[in-house]
Nucleic acid binder design. Structure first.
Lengths: 342, 342
DNA sequence: CTGAAAGCGCTTACAG
DNA sequence: CTGAAAGCGCTTACAG
């Protein structure tokens, strides 16, 4: 495998000049640059990232920390982040937490990221105090998606607002007994979305002066199966307490809720209305009413934020960018007015 | 940030000893190892991957090349591969092709992988001759998922067999006019699955001595929308040519096909039966009959294969491992006998 | 079991 | 615009 020395020798210049020419740095004459480029191509030369990283202090890689790669939203955000990173010449190091806190520790506390990456993207979880400390030690740009930490770039939707939008849609249809299938909050103070979406639910119920039965607040897990279980619980309530509408904190859970309603021999939306959040790739297919959020776009913006920060790292400024991306109510077929006898 | 020298100084040994102790190499006394480990922890020392990579020639990273991260099957394989890699101390570099051939070139031909990774996992695409040449240049273990290249490890299902299983299920139910919604084959000689699944379709139709209408072989794109379009085309055929059953090459397309049938005011499986391949996370929810393949497991096996190859790289042997993982017919609610008047 | 020394292949001031 | 030289922080034979 040819090294920078081979290229330098072939062209008859120093390795310093080869390095500058190849990286597009100024202060290299056009003709020299051309010759270097050609020789590098001829020799099939590729700079060693390890050597470049050691010498230059930059790895040209960005770490992406994600709770579960295989979940649609996270995979979409990763996909959105990947394109701008690749275009800018950065590799993407994927750190999948897979839901277990052990690997979470390993990623943050055991400094898996250290000296490996030039920037970090953290998806959908709010780092703990100690994790923030670890990230600060990195001294690299950090951008969060779906969470906020003062001083860092952040891309997210307004979760409370999105929940309120969903709730107002149900309320406008005339529903009064509305349940919420959300995420579990126990020991999960790290996910902002479930908390905020629950808050939106409560806020709108309160604004409408509607009582909330405790059993209407289901703590689930953002999966289809979790949605099935949540809805099954709700349908088991005595008739007077049974909700006529359900606001699920994600489309996956909403889809599960719809399935549970149908399995119980009831109809959506005639007997029960269901609304989700996301606009999952399958939502349209299900004719699911939902509050859409742009997943890929959020990944793209987060990548752009760290890219910009790395660019301007020499300059004084560098205010962290905070994007709140808009959500859109998509009324499809799973919501309607409550049953007539209500 | 502390370096190996700081640790060496603290303990009063050479950096070579620190290096050995930290990596668990033999020929270090227990007491020395203990002291080194403690000092490293105290100093919050983390070895620089760049320096280690440059000096040792190994990067402790594995590249994973994937057509589309956001598609369920690929995301699941990545997830399956991630765990064993992380446990073995390897980072995962994600290369998402995103369907465009330009970035495909960049990944393979422009040597994005070169000197960056100790091994490569290629998902679901058969590398071209020139891509194989690039991979060979890497001189690193390569494992393929869903494809085969002589001499390399490979993990896959028997696609022809899986298709035959699906077809035999439909044939056993009494269907005679069976259509196939598959992948496009044009300029896509790189994906083996669509070709093999089409072959299974043809083989079983021939074995049953059933004629195949050309219009029954739909070239689609493995998406839900593609399934909708494919089925819509089939339903537009004159009654005598309209299939009573459809074998889709993926669950996503099968799900789309089911949707198209329903939108046309027909019922599944009463009017049209639909079977897919995958057992997508939403398949059970849809009560989709399918031929299940283990996605995570394939990722896990592929990772294990390169891990083993890296372990034994010093030894003589090192026969590439080839796993054909089993598929299972899952009969659910979208298949049944053809309509009575047939 | 341990250390001194070379070297991995680049980039970066510093000169000119 | 270009080069000589130092240095980035490790690992690896080679000795002992």
């Amino acid at each position: 495998m040819s090294s920078i020395k081979d290229v330098a020798r072939t062209v008859g210049v120093s390795t310093a000049t080869v390095s500058r020419a190849l990286r597009g740095l100024p202060r290299v004459s056009e003709s020299t640059r051309d010759r270097v480029l050609r020789a590098a191509a001829d020799l099939d030369y590729v700079a060693s990232p390890s050597a470049a990283g050691l010498a230059g202090g930059r790895t040209r890689a960005v770490g992406v920390v994600v709770p579960f790669v295989s979940r649609w939203f996270f995979a979409s955000v990763v996909q959105g982040a990947e394109a701008p990173l690749r275009e800018a010449g950065y590799d993407l190091l994927l750190y999948n937490l897979g839901g277990d806190m052990e690997s979470r520790d390993r990623v943050f506390a055991s400094h898996l990221l250290r000296r490996r990456v030039d920037a970090v993207l953290v998806l959908s979880l709010t780092p703990s105090t100690s994790e923030i400390a670890e990230l600060v030690k990195l001294k690299r740009p950090v951008a969060l998606v779906g969470a906020t930490v003062p001083g860092w770039s952040s891309v997210r939707i307004d979760d409370v607002d999105a929940a309120c939008t969903a709730m107002r849609h149900l309320l406008a249809l005339g529903h009064r007994r509305i349940a919420h299938i959300g995420g579990s909050l126990e020991g999960q103070l790290d996910f902002a979305a479930p908390r905020d979406r629950l808050e939106g639910y409560r806020r709108e119920m309160a604004a409408a002066r509607l009582p909330v039965d405790r059993r209407w607040e289901i703590a689930s897990d953002f999966t289809v199966q979790g949605g099935v279980r949540g809805m099954t619980e709700l349908l088991a309530l005595e008739p007077a307490a049974r909700p006529t509408a359900v606001f699920a904190a994600s489309d996956e859970m909403a889809i599960g809720a719809v399935a549970a309603v149908r399995r119980a021999g009831l109809r959506v939306p005639d007997d029960v209305s269901v609304i989700g959040i996301d606009d999952h790739e399958m939502a349209e297919f299900f004719e699911l009413t939902t509050v859409a959020q742009p997943a890929r776009e959020q990944g793209r913006l987060a990548a752009a934020a760290v890219l910009a920060a790395m660019d301007s790292s020499n300059r004084p400024g560098g205010v962290p960018a905070t994007h709140t991306v808009p959500t859109t109510l998509l009324v499809r077929g799973t919501t309607g007015p409550p049953p007539c006898d209500e």
